[in-house]
Design a protein around this nucleic acid. Sequence first.
DNA 1: TATGAATGAGTTTTCATTCAT
DNA 2: GATGAATGAAAACTCATTCAT
Lengths: 211, 211, 211, 211
Amino acid sequence: MPRAEREQQMLDAAVQTFGQRGYRAASMDEIAELAGVSKPLVYLYLNSKEDLFTACIRREAAALVAAVRGAVEPEGAAGPGMPADRQLWAGLTAFFAHTAEHPDGWAVLHQQARTHGEPFAAEVAEMRAELAAFVTGLIGEAARAAHQDPAFGDRDVSGLAQALVGAAESLAQWANETPGVSAHEAAATLMNFAWTGLAGLMDGHRWSPTR
Amino acid sequence: MPRAEREQQMLDAAVQTFGQRGYRAASMDEIAELAGVSKPLVYLYLNSKEDLFTACIRREAAALVAAVRGAVEPEGAAGPGMPADRQLWAGLTAFFAHTAEHPDGWAVLHQQARTHGEPFAAEVAEMRAELAAFVTGLIGEAARAAHQDPAFGDRDVSGLAQALVGAAESLAQWANETPGVSAHEAAATLMNFAWTGLAGLMDGHRWSPTR
Amino acid sequence: MPRAEREQQMLDAAVQTFGQRGYRAASMDEIAELAGVSKPLVYLYLNSKEDLFTACIRREAAALVAAVRGAVEPEGAAGPGMPADRQLWAGLTAFFAHTAEHPDGWAVLHQQARTHGEPFAAEVAEMRAELAAFVTGLIGEAARAAHQDPAFGDRDVSGLAQALVGAAESLAQWANETPGVSAHEAAATLMNFAWTGLAGLMDGHRWSPTR
Amino acid sequence: MPRAEREQQMLDAAVQTFGQRGYRAASMDEIAELAGVSKPLVYLYLNSKEDLFTACIRREAAALVAAVRGAVEPEGAAGPGMPADRQLWAGLTAFFAHTAEHPDGWAVLHQQARTHGEPFAAEVAEMRAELAAFVTGLIGEAARAAHQDPAFGDRDVSGLAQALVGAAESLAQWANETPGVSAHEAAATLMNFAWTGLAGLMDGHRWSPTR
DNA sequence: TATGAATGAGTTTTCATTCAT
DNA sequence: GATGAATGAAAACTCATTCAT
């Protein structure tokens, strides 16, 4: 069996094990057995537990980002030409669909990687930044399209993106746990929650504690 | 030294260690040393690592909920009389202030407890449900105050609450990590993001993919 | 509460715990709790786990020996005047009755003390020797009463006594475990098994492999 | 070194350690060192202290039973044709010889296994039952060969077998501890003690307390 | 007389990792 | 390319024992 294929088998097993047990509780023994190979082979191909986990994070992050990107920019099509809200909608739908289809991968990214300190948190922070940048771009684009509000700075946008990504993550978890909640529904909930608010913001509606 | 005091010392040390290292990576040896006692004493007072972690979760959850509640319902005052948005604002400000002041406790609740399976996830889910119910109540109250939209069901509200809590959690993390972001600012960002959107929703503004 | 009484309480608790859990598995914590006193008091009165166990062995051994002796030599009565078989019968009945009434004490003597090496094995060996000597005496008396067989030496008698005591111990265990077997029945079984054989031996019936 | 051989080394070391120290007092560290391997290897091959002890019991029990059986039923030979007393004699001789040659194994079976509760006691009870059944068979056979006494029921036979096995165990201990006592002598002592008595019983000689 | 508070030393068990083949 | 054999290091947990009061 070619090396590349064996490696994918191992990563599959690792993602499943890490996702379900957690980084520390997952043992290399279990992963090797699930992958159907001997432990030394895992080390030969992937060096160490840390490297293996990192490889899992990278693969899953890339897959998730690709799924979102692919939905927003359909190859050769009018993707970029779509209005910002439709692009956001497409991205969110893809996001929720992907996380629902790959729960172990999502658990690795969302729960395990962020929980186990530095080598890993950075890895997933990068992906998160990528998604946040994408959202930021859309919001910025929309803001530009509307009559730009000069009091609306970069940090505001950044905070809003954080909020949106956090809301999306929370809803992904909720959708995975609550039976009968589809990716479609989750995306719609979030669009309703976020887009009308954002649109209002851009129209100058601002909430302030003093009034 | 009396038992109750020693126990608090141990919990302090445990929260710090669990928050920084994670549940599995934290060793009882380290916790005991940080608390300035011997390991057997930790076991004598708190039984097991699992029980110790549970005790941490409970204490931190109770403290966080108390902080939020205390801000929303100032003793003897006009608390309940305040409009919903002011109540939400007060609660969020307290939430962000508390998480900023107790980063390890927040890490225990937000990252560690949810990552390590059943005895613990349930514990924190209870707290989350409590906060979500509080938010749901406010949204519902506001919706009732506005002209009720009959197409706006329980599940919608539940989804919105999930989104809001997730956004808050994400912003708490962001505020903790980004220097110079105050609790005030995080709360304002979230109010802007959420409240204008919610208000719009209740006025019948709905986003839909088909248009 | 006077010291002597407290000590008996502790020994009661210790015998029960040692008998049921074994010497190593029994913890001083458990014994102290069962006795209703604090651990330091146990140490104050009985010094150490080893001393406590030794005290248990001594007390139980003395009680067992006293029960047997008391049955064989009824105070002031015709005890010594009884024929050897009646004396043996009386002793065995008392032995089985006592072990049935004090299963934990018997477990301490028969199972635990012999299993845990030198300080203790010697203690119980002494008691066993005392009982064996008693039996040996009876057999010897009977042999003398019969026409002495000069080929019947001390070692033979000693071996027979060992066999008899072993048989008694085994039957005690059997009687304790098998419902419905009374001390009476166990004693009768052993008398049948042993006495007819011994009587035959003394009449010169000898078994030999060559014929 | 192949696994099977290493396992035997470990069992050898374990039997010796358990036999001399007792189950609880024996530490896995000591066993591993005596076996000349590292502790993890002991766990890899034998799972746990409990499993290791069980494996010891099984191996020693099987060896003892095989030794006795092998002596009573010499392959292809007139074994079954021998009279009951000769068969018993052969079995006892083999029993005493085996226990004398494997004192640690015998200690494991006779002292340790019975003292440490349920997973183990059952294991050794099975072996004991096997030996008792063997003895019971011989006695029954002999009884049938003689003029059957109808008042001689199953429970009587069972009690006699218990007594005989107990006597044998006690003599084995005695022979192991007393210098100069051979297996031959121990077997002869027991045959004298038991067989003449049993023979007498079958001839209707019965001992009764009332006369 | 009696105890709440405290610990040093040791237990079983697990795991990431590496040779020799 | 692949594995059976093996281990150093560390984890959670327990226990007999002692002070200070």
